[in-house]
Design a binder for these strands. Structure first.
Length: 649
RNA sequence: GCCGGCAUAGCUCAGGGGUAGAGCAACCGCCUUGUAAGCGGUAGGUCCUCGGUUCGAUUCCGAGUGCCGGCUCCA
């Protein structure tokens, strides 16, 4: 009764096979060589295990160890080899579950009496290599729930029994076996363990069972695996590149900022770092002015009464710093919004006044749990390019889109191409009714939909006072960070009893929109440094040009050149060291300074400077007046490259 | 907050129960320099902090602090 299905191969040819045929059988039909080399398959782009019966027609592909897509099959298989190795070394270790994320890493969790040491990892890795050499074949077994339960009960693995309960009724339960090792697993896996060409265990860590803090603690081992040693080497090179771009290393190295143990997770910006910091804020100030946001300055420390009103006391207290004086309790602000509500309250507002837009670069302090802070991306002291818009219901969509538009503009300026947009919906800990949340969530989605922007919905990811749109970009090692955010808030206006007089004379409640574009200035700077590997855009660079006198004889002229450019508002330094030109160039290059201005006899005579870019390009001598014009123009336009002589004016 | 690792000169790191070393940087001198490291010299340390073991601790043990990799949580 088997019906036929049609598989379309990558070369466009079609193959008709009985439904229930496995990819491996298809491979055998195509050729013995391919059958031997196959690691996995895909139907319409979705990975399929070689032993899974095919149930429908579609675009069919086979992967060998050479295909980049084979990595997922290989790493998934490496998880089982890891669990096998640990179990062989310590039979009492209970294996929970493995996982491979979308990176090149895989992991497996164990119930184990102690933490795994680096020596343990070395022993496990050696055992894994032994297992690879055994070259067993992966087998796929479909079992009933009862059979699966019986098997894991016999193995004494209650973690697996717990996992089994999480599999929805009706779903096919599969086990995979290689050698004598058996695991509850959805697959897909490679054909044979020997197809895992290269493995490395990376680190161990304690984790919670099923990721829940209330559950027991397990021991996790991370590793990576590839089809070939060459791919592992490429992975190492990528890691090295990421390390070279790490802002935590580049920032102090470029003398931008430092940290002190006396103020954990709170950056100290040095003059160069502050120049960049203020450059970012200056850019946002321009945009704020252009879009009708009025900047305000508000206090740092406010009576806790305010935080009771705002709901922060109930929902955000564990992240706040407190202080007491004259028997009065104060809190250091973690957000600006309540202070903006106080400003709103100072006058009677009419619908004609709305929208009112307050921007604020106030310093914020949040007590972040130790262990979660990192570099500039997660700190305890920071500023946001914050703003709050008070508007009518009718104005919400336009105001949301205004903010989204500016955000996308900013990311374009900095050439962030991979921006992911997410909509965060109601979290467990929240204020307000479900109806209010309903309206707010739908409003955000509609604003994105009508503008054709793609986004993912992150359930439970909203702020406690309202849903949010967030904008995320990746750092050098692929970690995603939230930068900009637009949040709707129906709660604070209510808590602060904000109102405006409507056209009909009635009192109405405004809607509040929170928005940040860079997000936190600190985090943005950290990500930007990784994005640019420290070579900041010309307009932001702390030192925009360095004058390199060829010898001591040209120091005076070098000083003149720097002074001339400095008067035009550019940040220029002179290298007064007693070194050869090559050395000076190297120093400027390592400092990632956009332009090097070499001055020697020829330049002195011509009233010029020979320009070399940090990209290594030699632009030759350019007369000072012209150079000044072109550099000033490049900075003003926030352009990536020096405009040609004719373009300036 | 939890699990693990690390902490030696400004930076990168070596060393080791008997009060410490390299390279780079800094400083001084020679050279007067043409597009990524010229040569020589000098100076620089509470070996994170506190406690314990020891005749003696920077080294071994414990606690604390900070940082790093994860978990949980977030801009």
């Amino acid at each position: 009764m088997s019906s036929e299905i049609v598989l379309t191969l990558p070369d466009g040819s079609e193959r008709s096979v009985p439904a229930g045929t496995t990819p491996l059988e298809v491979a055998r039909a195509i050729g013995p060589r391919l059958a031997a080399d196959a690691v996995g398959a895909a139907l319409d782009g979705a990975p399929v295990d070689l032993r899974t019966p095919l149930g429908r027609s579609g675009a069919f592909r086979l992967y060998t160890a050479k295909s980049p897509e084979a990595g997922d099959f290989i790493r998934h298989s490496a998880e089982h080899v890891l669990a096998d190795a640990v179990t062989r070394l310590w039979p009492e270790a209970l294996y929970d579950a493995g996982r491979k994320d979308h990176s090149e890493k895989f992991q497996y969790d164990f119930r184990f009496a102690r933490a795994f040491t680096p020596e343990d990892l070395a022993a496990i890795e050696a055992k894994m290599r032994e297992i690879l050499a055994e070259d067993s074949t992966f087998e796929r077994l479909e079992v009933t729930r009862d059979e699966a339960e019986r098997i894991f009960r016999e193995l004494g693995n209650d973690l697996k029994l717990e996992r089994l309960k999480d599999i929805p009724a009706g779903e096919t339960i599969t086990l995979y076996r290689h050698g004598r090792f058996l695991d509850l697993c959805r697959g897909p896996h490679a054909q044979r363990v020997s197809q895992i060409g290269a493995i490395r265990l990376l680190e161990a860590s304690g984790v919670y069972f099923k990721g829940d803090e209330r559950n027991e603690r397990l021991q996790r081992i991370y590793g990576t695996a590839f089809g070939s040693a060459r791919e592992l080497e490429a992975y190492d090179r990528a890691l090295e590149e990421a390390r070279a771009r790490d802002h935590r290393r580049l920032g102090p190295e470029l003398d931008l900022w430092s940290f002190s143990p006396l103020a954990p997770a709170s950056p100290f910006f040095h003059p160069k770092g502050a120049a960049v910091y203020n450059g970012l804020i200056g850019y946002v100030r321009e945009l704020n002015a252009r879009h009708g946001y009025g900047e305000v300055v508000t206090p740092q420390i406010l009576d806790v009464e305010l935080w009771h009103t705002s709901g922060h006391w109930a929902n955000y207290r564990e992240n706040m710093f407190f202080t007491e004086l004259d028997e009065r309790q104060y809190a250091v602000k973690p957000m600006n919004c309540p202070t903006h509500c106080l400003i709103y309250q100072t006058g009677k507002r009419s619908y004609r006044d709305l929208p009112i837009r307050y921007a604020d670069f106030g310093r914020l302090h949040r007590y972040e749990r130790s262990g979660v802070t990192s570099g500039l991306t997660r700190v305890r002291s920071f500023a946001q390019d914050d703003a709050h818009v008070f508007c009518t219901d009718d104005q919400v969509e336009a105001e949301v889109m205004r903010a989204v538009g500016i955000i996308l503009d900013i990311y374009r300026t900095f050439e962030f191409r991979d921006v992911a947009i997410g909509v965060g919906t109601r979290p467990d800990k929240r204020v307000g009714s479900d109806e209010q949340w309903e309206v707010a969530e739908a409003g955000l989605c509609r604003a994105l939909d009508t503008n054709g922007l793609a986004y993912t919905v992150n359930a439970g990811d909203g702020a406690f006072y309202g849903p949010k749109i967030d904008f995320r970009v990746s750092d050098a090692i692929g970690r995603q960070w939230q930068l900009g955010t637009v949040q709707l808030d129906y709660q604070l206006p209510q808590r602060f009893e904000l109102e405006y007089v409507a056209a009909d004379g009635s009192f109405r409640r405004p809607v509040m929109i929170h928005r940040a574009m860079l997000g936190s200035v600190e985090r943005f700077l950290g990500i930007l440094i990784e994005h640019t590997a420290g070579a900041l855009p010309f307009w932001l660079a702390p030192v925009q040009a360095k004058v390199l006198p060829l010898s001591e004889r040209f120091l005076a002229y070098g000083g003149e050149v720097a002074a001339r450019l400095g008067e035009a508002g550019l940040r220029v330094e002179v290298d007064v060291s007693n070194e050869k030109l090559g050395y000076k160039i190297r120093q400027a290059q390592l400092a990632k300074i956009p332009y090097m201005l070499v001055v020697g006899e020829k330049e002195l005579q011509a009233g010029a400077a020979a320009v070399r870019t940090r990209g290594g390009e030699d632009l030759g001598p350019i007369p000072l007046a012209e150079l000044t014009r072109r550099l000033v123009d490049q900075a003003a336009r926030r352009a990536a490259a020096l405009p040609a002589a004719g373009e300036v004016g």
